[in-house]
């Protein structure tokens, strides 16, 4: 006899997770772009695990690539269980502002639904914007979903515009994550795709001393990374 159970699965909200990847020519130096492709690919199974642990969220992943101009690298919001990473290629300049403008178009309602979990936006760069970052950023912050989004930035190497990345993150107590070698990049990407994803989709156990944060999502402690430059192999 087959068991019949009333009702269906728990109602869910979409959680849009969007990678913004710097593909400028400098990312081609020292295997950075390969390291990024590898790190994201390694993070996919972890994202799937995080999705499995969260009955309230439907996690949808996309990616933007920016160099000379910006385009959707993976344009369809893809359920993480079907998400597959396509390799990025490095070439051109660093049109970060255009990337953020492109992103902003997709954070308007519609195409965004008016009921969702905060989107997670991950900006990864190894350099300085060559276009007007502020213009893109202003547009982003004028959209409600842009304001509500959890914004994380990963700096690859030392020659990075930290001020811009910090501006993107908004909250001064959260710093850009630093990756000075491929292993650190894997770890930072892992952290973003597990810890940040989990706490955004279905908050995990809370601690008493995390009550003074100004973010609208409790972001856990990032992994610590040696920043003495000795590990710099880029």
């Amino acid at each position: 006899m087959t068991t019949i159970l009333p009702g269906g699965k728990l109602s869910t909200r979409p959680l849009h997770f969007i990678w913004l990847c710097d593909c400028s020519a400098s990312m081609g130096d020292g295997g950075k772009i390969q390291a990024l492709n590898n790190a994201i690919r390694q993070a996919i199974p972890l994202m799937r695990d995080a999705a499995n642990d969260n009955p309230n969220a439907q996690i949808l992943v996309r990616a933007i690539a920016f160099s000379s101009g910006a385009q959707w690298h993976i344009s369809q919001p893809t359920p993480v269980e079907h998400f597959d990473w396509e390799d990025l290629q490095a070439d051109g300049i660093t049109d970060m502002g255009k990337a953020i403008s492109l992103l902003t178009e997709q954070l308007k309602v519609p195409p965004m639904t008016d009921r969702a979990l905060p989107p997670v936006l991950v900006l990864i760069s190894d350099g300085y914007p060559t276009d007007d970052f502020n213009e893109g950023f202003r547009k982003l912050m004028s959209e409600p979903w842009g304001q509500k989004a959890v914004k994380v930035a990963i700096a690859i190497g030392d020659d990075v515009d930290y001020d811009v990345l910090q501006k993107f993150i908004v909250h001064p107590e959260l710093k850009p994550l630093r990756a000075n070698n491929p292993e650190q990049l894997v770890n930072q990407i892992k952290w973003v795709s597990t810890a940040v994803l989990k706490s955004t989709s279905s908050p995990v156990s809370q601690s008493a001393n995390s009550s003074n944060i100004s973010t609208n999502v409790p972001i856990p402690t990032p992994p610590t990374v040696a920043t003495d430059g000795v590990d710099d192999v880029w």
Partner: peptide, 12 residues
């Protein structure tokens, strides 16, 4: 809950 657009920590 249905009326909440962005379900973040303050709204929770």
């Amino acid at each position: 809950e249905a009326k909440i657009k962005c379900l973040d920590l303050p709204s929770r």
